[in-house]
Simulated assay, not measured.
Amino acid sequence: MYDYMIIGAGIIGLNIAKNLKERFPQSKILVIEKEPEVALHSSGRNSGVLHAGFYYTANSLKAKFTKEGNIALKNFCKQRNLKINECKKVVVAIDEEELLGLEELKRRGDINGVELIWLDEKELEKLYPNIKTYKKALLCPSTATVNPKEVTKEFAKVIEELGIQLILDCKYLGSYNNIVKTSQGDFEAKKVINCAGLYADKIARDFGFSKDYVIIPFKGIYLKDKNNISNLATNVYPVPDLKNPFLGVHYTLTVDNESKIGPTAIPAFWRENYQGFDNFSFSEFFEILFYEAKLFITNAFSFRKLAFSEIKKYNLNYFKNLAMKLTKNMNHEGYNSWSTPGIRAQLLNKNTLELVQDFVVESDENSVHVLNAVSPAFTSSIPFANWVVEEHILK
């Protein structure tokens, strides 16, 4: 009998395990992961950007945890000698309407306590000659990039150092009375914590949760310039549409000084729809197609426009041109290969047909279900895990 059993060894599951063990050193904790190693899905396939916390409204969990998480993950990387690129971020505008969007981001940043610096066009040109904006831009000094796979694997090392049992190649098959059936036998725990990412909603339903929600997958890929021929010196982002959770096509500078354009947010047709027909599932295909058809017919959150614009991004010139609105005289010849695809496990409210923007956790005395841990969940992982423990596991 375990005190706590965590399903999913992504960055959230690993941090919840770490937090519990540090609070209760005598507790018996098990983490199971269906893959042969950690970080094969969202935790290892995201951009690696440590966000600062100025996109989110002040009353949201994302606002609360992103700023704290940025500091905490930087400290973790420094303590464990992991690579970090403190390359900052610039958010630019292309017209008067987007200038209003910049003002809103600055207002949110001020409320959330995130440092943002106004730059006029001359100041921007002096710092970053290849970046262009309309009248003003926002510089965020605290944004950085890390290698997400390296960071997640390091958390896996940490939990094993703490004496937490991690079983790989251990697939969840079902549950009854807090006994979890897996491909490596049955395990019993006083409390089960579901951090299964793309499958969190399905597992939650076995415990009577996620009645109003379903996960809709969106595929994200980047165009890479492996040698940074473009001489990108910082992350460059457009003003996002704050009504949906995607940040638009932007430039990212990786920890290894590669530059990337992206990502896409293409609706996927099954949960691990990374390439071709890999991991194809008929049941997932029909369930997701049902909800995507519903979104298309009702045009909820302008889904039709989103779907058509995302599909166009498979055209390299179209994709590059979206990014080139943010830059000038930059050499784009190096952007010629696609990155490893990632899938965003985006929660959809089945009743309102809205994409849920904030983190969602459901729980009772027997189980806890992390249903919506989308970007910036990687950045927020340390304080978010602490909140899950305090508000859902220990209560």
Rank of each mutant, 00 (worst) to 15 (best):
E154N: 14
F246A: 10
N244I: 15
H332D: 13
L105G: 08
F308I: 15
I84E: 09
P141W: 12
K243D: 14
K78P: 05
F286E: 09
P267G: 07
K313Y: 07
L247E: 06
E33T: 03
V31L: 01
N46L: 09
A200Y: 04
K88P: 06
I229A: 08
G220L: 05
G13M: 05
F378V: 00
I261D: 00
G13I: 04
V361C: 08
A137V: 10
N228F: 06
F303P: 07
I297H: 04
E125G: 10
K219G: 09
L322K: 15
G197V: 13
K211D: 14
A137N: 10
I343D: 02
K21L: 02
L99G: 14
S230F: 03
A58L: 09
E292A: 05
E22T: 06
I179E: 12
D206A: 11
L119C: 10
K190R: 15
G174C: 01
K328G: 11
E284K: 12
S339T: 09
E33C: 01
F290E: 11
V374Y: 04
I12Y: 03
L139A: 08
V92Q: 11
S60Y: 03
L73V: 10
A323Y: 04
N366C: 08
I11L: 06
V38Y: 00
Y274C: 04
E104A: 14
L326C: 10
I94W: 12
M1I: 06
G163C: 00
E284A: 01
N317G: 12
L162G: 01
A17F: 01
G109D: 03
Q79S: 14
M330E: 08
E97Q: 15
E123Q: 15
T352W: 04
K34D: 00
